[in-house]
Design a protein around this nucleic acid. Structure first.
Length: 607
DNA sequence: AAAAAAG
C-alpha cells in the first residue's frame, strides 16, 4: 500500500517519475509565516483566457454566427418524417470542417474535435473506455419481468447509423449500466438507474432514445405557430451538464436526422428559440429556461415520448422539485405510462426514490456497481487540516504534483470549495502564488463559466476551483486529482465530487481536508471509504465512533442500507401498495412486484 | 447554510 499521495498519483494516474528524488527548490512556495512577501518570480498566468483560440467553440452552444441570417426563420420543419438513415445521409453532405457555415442544413462533424484531441494528447488517452475496469461488479435489478442484459452492442438492434456513431466514439462494448439499462429501456420500460460516476450513464439513456425516435416512422407533429414539439426531453441540474449531454447526444445522432437542441439559462434565449424553430427531436435543458420557454409557448411537451432526468436525485431534491413537478405534472406532458421515463444518478436516497416514483410507471430499479464511488478506480485520502492551514496544505500538494509533472495538460486538478466567495478568493490566491487557476461558480457569468471550463479542459489552466456547480456529471478527461478543500455536508455530494476523476475506467486520486467542522460527515465518510476498500485513518474512525454514538449523526442513512443502492420498494415499511408508484398512471399496477422481492441474500452487496 | 436554476 502506498503511503504518500504523490506516490499514488505516480502509480495510478500518470506515467512514472522518481517520486523519491530530492525535491527541487520551491521557487514559488511561501511558507505561512512569510506569506506577505511579494509574489514569486513565476507570473500568475493571468493571460490564459486571452490565449485561447478564438474559434474554440460557439458561445452558448448555439448556432454558428454565420447561420444567423440563414433564412430558415420561416421554415420550421416540425412535421418532418425523414428519420431513415437513407434519406438525408446519402450524397450532398459535406462534413469537412473549416469552411464557412453557409447552409442551415449542414451538420457539423462532432467527431473532428475528438480526433484533434487524440493527436494533441497522444495515442493512449482516448482509446475509449477501459471496460475491463468494470468487470465483475455487482448488479441488482428489481421490478416485474426485467428484460435480460446484453453483452454486446451488436446484440441490440440500435440501427446502423447509431452503431456507426458508437464505433466512432470508440465504444467497443457496453459498460455494465449500458448492458442492463439499454435493453430495459428498449423494451419500453420506465427505469430508475443507479450507476457509478463515470460509468457511461449518458449513453445508456441516449441510445434508446435515439433508436426509438429513428423507429418512429409516422409521427405527425402539430404545426402551431412557432411552438416546437420535441419527442424527448432530457433534464439536468446545471447548464454545463446540459451542454455536455447535448454534445454527446449530437455525436450519437450524427447523420441520423435526429435533431438535438439544448436550452439553458444565462445565454441569449433568442438564439435558443431560433434553434428550436428549426426543429427539435431531443431537447436537452435546465429546468428554469425550459419553464420560460414553455410559458412563452415556444415549446410544447405534448409529443414527448421519452423523459430522462440526469442526476435525478438532485433534480428532485428541495431546490428543484417544484420546477420538475411543474414541467412533468402541470404542463402538457403525457402522463406516465404514455411516455417512457428514465431516471439516472450515481446516488439515490430512499426519500428521493419515493418522490421519484410519482413520475414512474411499473418501473425497473437497476443498481450497478457499488453505488457511491468507483471503488478501486479512485484512491481516496483524508487529511486532518485546520481551516487556517488549508491554503498552505493545498500549496504543498500542488508543489509536490508539479514536481511529479502532474500539473498541466496531462494532469488536471479540481478543487472544491463550499462558497462562491471562497472560490474567487482561492482562485486569486493560487494565481498570486504562481499556480494557473480559474474558477467556476454560480456568480460568474455564463460566458465566464464556459470559458473557465474550456480553459481547464484544454490544460491551459490546469487548476479549477469550483463550487458544487461542477460536482455532478461533468466529464473532464485527465482530471488526475480532486481536492475537497472544503468538504460538503452530504456524503452524496462527496461521492459526486470525487467522481470527477477516475472516469471511463481510468484511475484517479481524491484528497479531502477534514477538520472539526466536518464532524457530521465523519461516519458516512469512514463507512464509504471502508466500503471502497480505502485506508481509513485511525483518527477518522475515532471521529466516526463519536459521531454515531453522540447526537451528531443526523445522516439520513444511518442505520439503513447505505448509498441508496437499493430499491426502496423492497424495504418492508414502504411495501404497502400502489400509492407509491403510479396512482395516477393509466396502468393498474398490481400491489406486488413479482420478481421484485427476491430472497434477502440477493441485496447483500448493498448492505 | 450553501449552491443551483429565469431575468
Amino acid at each position: 500500500m502506498t503511503t504518500s499521495w504523490a506516490d499514488s498519483v505516480d502509480n495510478s494516474v500518470i506515467g512514472s517519475s522518481d517520486a523519491n528524488a530530492a525535491r527541487p527548490a520551491r521557487s514559488t512556495y511561501v511558507p505561512p509565516h512569510l506569506r506577505n512577501k511579494p509574489p514569486s518570480s513565476e507570473p500568475p498566468v493571468a493571460s490564459h483566457s486571452s490565449s485561447l483560440p478564438a474559434n474554440d467553440r460557439v458561445n452558448y452552444g448555439g448556432p454558428t454566427a454565420g447561420s444567423r441570417g440563414g433564412g430558415s426563420y420561416n421554415r420550421p420543419d416540425h412535421g418532418r418524417q425523414e428519420y431513415g438513415y437513407s434519406g438525408r445521409t446519402g450524397g450532398g453532405w459535406n462534413n469537412r470542417g473549416g469552411g464557412w457555415d453557409r447552409g442551415r442544413e449542414r451538420e457539423v462533424n462532432p467527431f473532428e474535435d475528438d480526433e484533434a484531441t487524440d493527436h494533441a494528447f497522444g495515442e493512449q488517452e482516448n482509446t475509449g473506455i477501459n471496460f475491463d475496469a468494470y468487470d465483475d461488479i455487482p448488479v441488482d435489478t428489481s421490478g416485474e419481468n426485467v428484460p435480460p442484459p446484453v453483452n454486446t452492442f451488436a446484440e441490440i438492434d440500435l440501427g446502423e447509423a447509431l452503431n456507426h456513431n458508437i464505433r466512432r466514439c470508440k465504444y467497443v462494448k457496453p459498460t455494465p449500466v449500458q448492458r442492463y439499462a439499454i435493453p430495459i429501456s428498449l423494451a419500453g420500460r420506465d427505469l430508475m438507474a443507479c450507476a457509478q460516476t463515470g460509468s457511461g450513464k449518458t449513453a445508456a439513456f441516449c441510445f434508446p432514445i435515439i433508436s426509438g425516435i429513428l423507429k418512429m416512422q409516422h409521427v405527425q407533429r402539430p404545426r402551431i405557430g412557432r411552438t416546437a414539439f420535441p419527442l424527448a426531453l432530457i433534464l439536468s441540474p446545471t447548464r454545463e451538464l446540459s451542454c455536455q449531454i447535448h454534445d454527446e447526444a449530437k455525436k450519437f445522432s450524427y447523420q441520423t436526422g435526429v435533431k438535438v437542441v439544448v436550452a439553458y439559462g444565462g445565454a441569449p434565449i433568442n438564439q435558443q428559440m431560433r434553434e428550436l424553430e428549426r426543429g427539435v427531436d431531443i431537447l436537452v435543458a435546465t429546468p428554469g429556461r425550459l419553464v420560460d420557454l414553455l410559458e412563452r409557448a415556444r415549446v410544447s411537451l405534448q409529443m414527448i415520448r421519452y423523459l430522462a432526468l440526469d442526476e435525478a436525485d438532485r433534480m428532485l431534491d428541495m431546490g428543484f422539485e417544484p420546477q420538475i413537478r411543474k414541467i412533468v405534472e402541470q404542463m402538457d406532458m403525457p402522463l406516465q405510462g404514455l411516455r417512457q421515463t428514465m431516471l439516472f444518478s450515481a446516488t439515490f436516497p430512499k426519500e428521493i426514490q419515493r418522490l421519484a416514483s410519482d413520475f414512474l410507471s411499473n418501473y425497473v430499479f437497476l443498481a450497478v456497481g457499488r453505488v457511491g464511488s468507483s471503488t478501486d478506480l479512485i484512491a481516496q485520502r483524508v487529511e486532518y487540516v485546520l481551516e487556517s492551514d488549508k491554503r498552505s496544505h493545498l500549496m504543498d500538494l500542488l508543489h509536490a504534483q508539479r514536481e511529479n509533472g502532474i500539473i498541466g495538460k496531462q494532469g488536471l486538478t479540481l478543487v472544491f470549495v463550499e462558497t462562491k466567495k471562497g472560490a474567487d478568493a482561492l482562485e486569486h490566491w493560487l494565481c498570486l502564488n504562481g499556480f494557473p487557476a480559474t474558477s467556476i461558480h454560480g456568480d460568474r457569468t455564463q460566458q465566464e463559466r464556459e470559458l473557465a471550463l474550456r480553459s481547464f479542459k484544454s490544460g491551459n489552466t490546469p487548476i479549477l476551483v469550483a463550487t458544487d456547480v461542477a460536482a455532478r456529471g461533468l466529464d473532464i478527461p485527465r482530471v488526475a486529482h480532486v481536492v475537497n478543500f472544503d468538504l460538503p455536508n452530504d456524503i452524496d455530494d462527496y461521492v459526486h465530487r470525487i467522481g470527477r476523476t477516475g472516469r471511463a475506467g481510468k484511475m484517479g486520486l481524491a484528497t479531502a481536508f477534514f477538520n472539526d467542522n466536518n464532524f457530521s460527515l465523519a461516519k458516512p465518510l469512514a463507512d464509504l471509504m471502508q466500503e471502497a476498500n480505502q485506508e481509513v485513518p485511525a483518527w477518522l474512525t475515532r471521529f466516526a465512533a463519536r459521531a454515531s454514538y453522540g447526537g451528531g449523526n443526523r445522516n439520513r442513512r444511518s442505520g439503513g442500507s447505505r448509498f441508496g443502492g437499493r430499491d426502496f420498494r423492497r424495504d418492508g415499511q414502504h411495501n404497502k401498495g400502489p400509492e407509491y408508484y403510479g396512482g395516477t398512471g393509466g396502468y393498474g399496477v398490481p400491489a406486488s412486484y413479482g420478481g421484485g422481492y427476491g430472497p434477502p441474500g440477493v441485496a447483500s452487496a448493498w448492505d
